[in-house]
């Protein structure tokens, strides 16, 4: 019961950011996707395919129609992660309300799980649902000449999880009791490294492995800092 109450409280505080992320991603991501549908395949793409000639192999590689949407998905996820990390772990620091939260009748692990659960739900609902909808829309052969692969769908979810990594990095930076000019921002720096290493992998398995290692490293430090530090 306490967990649910805390979860509702965190979701209520995260709601403006969830709505903002959903609106931005749906509006801009949808707009660029619709523009891609309207433009279609450039007519020059296959113009080099004439009998008795060597084919330019570059013309045989194709981006999916969700190409531009992907950039917005990544930016929205990371932005949402930063915003939620600040809301959940930095705002109580700035407003000096940690003692009010920590000294409730709920124990610290419950408070922490509520925050993390709220963050996960905040990614799935506004960003995840919109991503699924845009992907389904891009799979219509009557609208798009080139259809996306299933791998692109998984990559989109990877981008959403990278937003979670940004959230965890921000949370760790907020919980660190070090000075800002020493090691306080190491959490954010590490999250940045994980994001960069993930998006430049060419094997999905390795990308997920890097992501999982990054999440485990950040989460373990967050749990330790939250449960053991003095607020």
């Amino acid at each position: 019961m306490r967990f649910l109450a805390l979860l509702r409280k965190e979701l209520r505080e995260s709601l403006p950011w969830m709505l903002l992320a959903a609106i931005i991603f749906l509006a801009i991501g949808g707009f660029v996707l619709r523009a891609q549908a309207y433009l279609g395949q450039p007519s020059w793409y296959y113009s080099g395919l004439s009998p008795g000639t060597v084919v330019d192999t570059y013309r045989l590689t194709h981006f999916s129609p969700l190409r531009m949407t992907g950039s917005w998905l990544l930016v929205t996820s990371i932005g949402l992660g930063l915003a939620l990390g600040v809301r959940h772990f930095w705002m109580p620091l700035f407003t000096r309300t940690w003692p009010f939260l920590i000294h409730r009748s709920a124990n610290r692990p419950t408070i922490l799980w509520a925050k993390l659960a709220a963050a996960i739900i905040s990614f799935i609902i506004p960003v995840g649902v919109v991503w699924v909808a845009l992907y389904r829309y891009s799979c219509r052969p009557e609208i798009f000449e080139t259809l996306p692969t299933k791998r692109v769908f998984i990559e989109g979810w990877l981008f959403i999880l990278l937003g979670l990594v940004a959230y965890l990095g921000t949370a760790l930076a907020g919980l660190s009791s070090a000075r800002w000019y020493t090691t306080k921002i190491l959490g954010l720096a590490f999250a940045t490294i994980v994001i960069c290493m993930t998006i430049f992998q060419w094997r999905l398995g390795w990308a997920f492995a890097v992501l999982v290692v990054g999440v485990v490293v950040l989460l373990s430090q967050i749990i330790d800092a939250f449960l053991n530090r003095e607020f």
Binding site: V54, D56, T57, Y58, L60, T61, H62, F63, S64, L66, R67, M68, G70, S71, L74, P148, T149, R151, V152, E155, G156, L158, T198, I199, F200, Q201, W202, R203, L204, A207
Partner: peptide, 23 residues
């Protein structure tokens, strides 16, 4: 343009912010 090597195959599969490409 004439040859497509395994290095390029890996490059097009790189995730990148614009997603991977397909052959």
């Amino acid at each position: 343009t004439e040859s497509f090597t395994d290095t390029r195959m890996k490059q097009i599969q790189m995730i990148t912010p614009e997603f991977s490409r397909s052959l």
